[in-house]
Amino acid sequence: MADLSISGEYLDSLRSQFTALAAFTSTEDDAAVDHSSCGSDLVATAGNQTATLQLSRASIASLNAMALSEHAGTTSVEIAALDASLAKAAGDK
């Protein structure tokens, strides 16, 4: 029940922080990091592979941040529902 000490307002704020976090690691266009014109096959291959890995890492980080936002959002909904339920119970008395 300790979770209920949290306000829906804080969870909304937390959710927006996670959304901002996801935006920090949002992925980019492949073409922007294409090394093919560098003049060396060796460098182009290594550079493109590293860029691909960075895209994957950024994507995973972004998805994780969004999942945390969703978790905070879900909790917010649950708390709102519980608040409504408690209010209704109080009104019924």
């Binding site: 029940m1 949290i6 937390l14 976090l21 690691t25 980080a61 994780n64 945390l68 978790h71």
Partner: peptide
Amino acid sequence: SHWTGYAASMNLNATQALVPDLTVL
């Protein structure tokens, strides 16, 4: 200071777990 309990711990741990990956990135 705003949120405690099981769900809070889960969220906190998962949030902290992002740091090593982001440091590598």
